[in-house]
Design a protein around this nucleic acid. Structure first.
Length: 443
RNA sequence: GGCGCCUUGGUCAAGUGGUUAAGACUCCGCCCUCUCACGGCGGCUUCAAGGGUUCGAAUCCCUUAGGCGUCACCA
């Protein structure tokens, strides 16, 4: 039988990272088995419907590289794939249940009639057999009085009609699965395979964890993209949050590699905590693997306005190994836009034997020497400073440190002194150096 | 509260009766080095607790604790 999975979100307006992971696993499971992945919209709660939410879902899947084979917006022989457009279908099946004695009408709605004794079991791929006593089951609503089905009913009908073979969803549904099983049995339908995923957790300020939600910060795919994470890195990270390839220690996976390596037995039973540190690391791995051109283009698209124009790509070459997400570009480069205020004590550096006193001596000589540089390139600057260092007979760290601090106003900069000077340009460099020399002398 | 699910370092995790309990992130140290970063090397920290079973247990059984979920005309 051809493997078919579905992602069935309700359109609530944003794609939570946990939802994205569910979609990803369903997609990977289908593709790794050469099957189909379906997108179905579960919009049976009219009160919660959010305008444009379906587009958010589609756009997110697209950005994440998850392409449905069929479903809302993708065609397919089981259309429509939007539950609100399938009301008549659910009504027909609900009535069939009443005729068979498995359901009854109650205050304008239709309820499922649960057995009072015995127990119902089902097998979950990752949890094994789960059994619940029938007396724990309520006579749940199948069809609401507004004519819309409930999740617990529409889900079963659609999964059967759409020939879904593997139901991949969150654990919050594990305890209601026996109700679904009873429905399958009432219709005498074959049971699909259930795979209930452990939730994605967030870390609370007090160290405890709870299901990932807004209060943990950025938790939607969009939020993460806006923070400057690469979609492919987010997908890669999320794939490993609750799944392990087992046969390899590889951690960086393209979508194609995820498909090749995916297997349900690598899915974990226990919740996983979303860790921004690891996401940062993974994103920076993606950065380092990109070509400079690609990195620059995407960085430029991320920024509202390009900085340094013709020197932008050079700046990016410096930042590529130094930032873990695009949003860090601004703080890492703002010293280039405006010289920060700083205390002269910043010049002092023990390792390079820099003191306020020798800074006062050396800085004027460096200015004098640098003013002679005609063609302000990295190479020429290196050469110029090397000559100065030689004529002075001092350690190069001494001169480099002093000039770099004077030019940048920071003890830590992306790149070294010549890169900083080059980015600043001759006029700005000399002017900053002179300004800080004045500050140094009056200190 | 009833029921269900879960529990290997701070985090992600491998492990399925015999291992020095993999690997990754974080953190720390060293090397490289004008700073930071990259790269290289090294280090800290773990089987929730308590009982069994067994020559031997992270692995099997029981109990306890904690976490999560569910008990809607929400999904």
């Amino acid at each position: 039988m051809r493997v078919r999975t579905r992602f069935a979100p309700s359109p609530t307006g944003f794609m939570h990272i946990g939802n994205l992971r569910t979609a990803l696993y369903a997609y990977l499971f289908a593709k790794s088995n050469h099957g189909d992945f379906i997108l179905r919209i579960e919009d049976t709660d009219q009160a919660r419907y959010v305008e444009g939410a379906v587009d958010v879902i589609k756009n997110t899947l697209k950005a994440a590289g998850i392409t449905p084979d069929e479903g809302e917006g993708f065609g397919g022989k089981f259309a429509p794939y939007v539950q609100s457009q399938r009301k008549e279908i659910y009504k027909k099946y609900a009535e069939e249940l009443i005729e068979k004695g498995f359901a009854y009408r109650d205050e304008g709605a239709i309820r499922q009639k649960m057995p009072k004794t015995g127990e119902t079991s089902f097998r979950d791929e990752i949890h094994g057999v789960v059994t619940i006593k029938n007396e724990e089951l309520e006579d749940q609503i199948l069809l609401k009085s507004d004519g819309m089905p409930t999740y617990n009913f529409a889900n079963v009908i659609d999964d059967h009609l759409m020939e879904v073979t593997h139901i991949i969803r969150g654990t919050e549904f594990i305890t209601s699965t026996p109700k679904h099983v009873l429905l399958y049995q009432a219709f005498e339908w074959d049971l699909p395979t259930f795979i209930h995923l452990a939730p994605v957790m967030g870390k609370n300020p007090d160290g405890s964890t709870s299901k990932l939600s807004k209060r943990h910060g950025a938790t939607s795919f969009d939020d993460l993209c806006k923070m400057g994470y690469l979609p492919e890195a987010i997908v890669n990270y999320v794939a490993l949050l609750g799944w392990n390839p087992k046969t390899t220690n590889q951690e960086i996976f393209s979508m194609q590699e995820l498909i090749e390596n995916f297997s349900a037995d690598g899915l974990s039973k226990s919740p996983a905590v979303f860790d921004y540190d690891k996401l940062d690391w993974m994103n920076s791995e993606y950065f380092k693997a990109m070509s400079l051109e690609d990195f620059s283009n995407r960085a430029e698209k991320f920024l509202q306005k390009k900085i340094l124009d013709d020197k932008f790509e050079f700046l990016m070459s410096l930042l590529q190994t130094r930032i873990s997400k695009f949003s860090e570009i601004e703080s890492a480069s703002k010293f280039l836009i405006a010289l920060p205020e700083f205390d002269p004590s910043l010049f002092v550096n023990k390792k390079n034997k820099v003191t306020i006193e020798n800074s006062r001596e050396i800085l004027p000589k460096a200015i004098e020497s640098l003013e002679k540089v005609e063609n302000w390139t990295n190479e020429n600057l290196s050469e110029n400073l090397a000559e100065l260092i030689e004529s002075l007979g001092v350690k190069k760290g001494l001169v480099f440190w002093i000039v770099r601090v004077a030019a940048s106003g920071q003890s830590v900069t992306p790149g070294g002194v010549t890169e900083v000077l080059y980015l600043l340009g001759k006029d700005e460099s000399i002017s900053r150096l002179k300004k800080n020399l004045a500050n140094l002398e009056s200190a």
